[in-house]
């Protein structure tokens, strides 16, 4: 989001405090010196991670402090992971496999790439999953593990270290 605040000491902290108070994660703060309108006003771009339901409350609190939200860009699902599934994916209802993730509301399959070498042979597929947060991704992977067990897929998860 792009914020407009008074160019005086303590103003940036005043803008960032409500974000962290509400459990948001501040990823970066960019001072936009060139685009500053002047006359004691400062324009700042901040990239934050916050549960979407808290966003309206955050904007209200910023306004209470005299900070103007100029622009708001929202990427709902910012967390991305890629997994590989091996097995009889098509004949075990591929639509259902994808739905099990999509139905959660906090994660979805956004890309899929399939390799089907021959009829009756196992299919290998890459799924890209996006989620709201890292925790949601772990929950999505847990669901996928259950699906893999049930449909006898080999699930290859990414190593996060």
């Amino acid at each position: 989001m792009k914020l407009e605040l008074r160019d005086s000491p303590g103003q940036l902290v005043a803008a960032l405090l409500p974000i962290s108070d509400m459990g948001g994660n501040i990823k970066t703060v960019i001072h936009e010196h060139e685009h500053t309108p002047g006359q004691g006003v400062l324009s700042v771009e901040v990239v934050i991670e916050i549960p979407p339901e808290l966003l309206d409350g955050l904007i209200a609190r910023l306004r209470e402090r005299g900070i103007n939200v100029l622009r708001l860009g929202e990427e709902r699902m910012s967390y991305r992971q890629s997994v590989i599934l091996i097995g009889h994916l098509v004949h075990t209802d591929l639509g259902d496999t994808i739905d099990r993730i999509d139905q959660t509301g906090f994660a979805e399959v956004t890309y899929m790439s399939l390799a089907m070498p021959a009829i009756n042979e196992r299919t290998s597929a890459q799924f890209v999953i996006k989620s709201l947060t890292r925790e949601h991704m772990q929950q999505a992977l847990l669901i996928l593990r259950q699906v893999a067990k049930q449909k006898e897929f080999l699930l290859i998860e990414p190593l996060e270290f």
Binding site: I86, S113, A115, R122, S124, A125, Q126, L154, I156
Partner: peptide
């Protein structure tokens, strides 16, 4: 033992 060469290509 159940890995496929396609899976390695996808990776």
């Amino acid at each position: 033992d159940l890995l496929t060469e396609e899976a390695l290509r996808l990776a």
